[in-house]
Design a protein around this nucleic acid. Sequence first.
DNA 1: ATGGCAGTACTGGTATACAAGTACTGGAAC
DNA 2: GTTCCAGTACTTGTATACCAGTACTGCCAT
Lengths: 239, 239
Amino acid sequence: MAAMSLPGGRRTARRAVHETLRQKVVTLELPPGSALSENELAASLGVSRTPVRESLLLLSEEGFVQVFPQVGSFVSRVDPQRVADAQFVREAVELASLAAVPDPPGDDAVAALHENLEQQHRPGIDVEEFFRLDEEFHRGLLGLSGHSSAWSTVASAKAHLDRARRLGLNETPPDAFVAQHQQILDALVAGDRATAHDVLRSHLRAVFDDIEQVRARSPELFASDAGSVPVRRSVAVWT
Amino acid sequence: MAAMSLPGGRRTARRAVHETLRQKVVTLELPPGSALSENELAASLGVSRTPVRESLLLLSEEGFVQVFPQVGSFVSRVDPQRVADAQFVREAVELASLAAVPDPPGDDAVAALHENLEQQHRPGIDVEEFFRLDEEFHRGLLGLSGHSSAWSTVASAKAHLDRARRLGLNETPPDAFVAQHQQILDALVAGDRATAHDVLRSHLRAVFDDIEQVRARSPELFASDAGSVPVRRSVAVWT
DNA sequence: ATGGCAGTACTGGTATACAAGTACTGGAAC
DNA sequence: GTTCCAGTACTTGTATACCAGTACTGCCAT
């Protein structure tokens, strides 16, 4: 829903930079703690500081970047509190949406979800591809209730979860997630709301548990003290 | 949660401009459709275009402002679709939170809510004061479940509702809302979850209905066609 | 009077210059 | 070796200049 101010097709430098950086942050190509110098980024992206700066401002509003005046800008570490918030909001909205799905769900939407699942089941699936399909699946699920327009809100809350999930993707093979997706859809078309509800909740919480495992193993990627300020290095170190 | 990038006390021009403009938009001092020229604002606020521009960027991300390149920036009209989304999300999160409140709710939090309600009951209450108390009440309600940190997400979704509510505050006297607040809290402390749940839902939907009444009376404040683009005037006119 | 077209005054997007502040570096003093 | 301090090289914040594009204005031809 955001960024509706710049009508769709308009290509601006800010838009391009914002999307590029966001992608790199979410995919961990820029891991938590990375220093983001406005000058460096401007030079490497071939634009001036202005669009870079505005992109960083937006990313900081999204919680992906932290800007410390006169010190530097850094890819934010994963904030467990923030992840928990996102989890709670996402769970609330997705479950509320599930409850509002009409009893025979729309055939077209169901068909789309089935096709999506087929692709998820394809062996040797790429991680990036899985993330794309996962996103599409959950958006489609929300669409079943006619509240697809609320997806943007969920997507925003989901953003932090996504980044944390990538850290933990090696913990649990995607197969388990795909199986859960399948169960949810099967229960829905079978009219078994209770099962769909329970499995969706388990599914969402499994993601959350995954994150906790990563946290135990790589605490340096997580923010422990909200008040800490990083020092300027090629990679930030929180003291 | 947002804007944590600039540590609290740091006073920057952007911060000041952002808060000023946000306040004026939310309180309808700048009504939907108002033209916001970067140059004019910069001149009147005594700063350069840069902080003004960055503020408008943030406000557009929040949905309060629409920026049309080479045309102008305007206080956004109330988008019914967006309001509906906000309503759905808010309802889902607040109800989910309510369900997670421990059975005897925390005494301190309950006491705070009671005191808040006392102030709401004060006769001849100011509209701005009511809004402040209403916000505090719902935040406190969310806090009962220990998910107070998710408030920022609700607050963000709530932002559009708030603005629309101000338009409709003359429709239904605040007394009705205050009474509903009272019922919710009473039911909660009495352990009657079902009633609390139902009243909260009714309460939230009453706000929504209020907005619909205003829409019928003042359609020019609402966006009817998402693709419409305003013409540059002292006050924007959507064609 | 009316339709069309050029001129003009505005818009936001971008690039750049300067200012204020922080932290590292290297050397002098002890 | 240690401590302190000045210098320097960076950081983000702000101001300004310029650019591309839009829409209104008023003249001109009809």
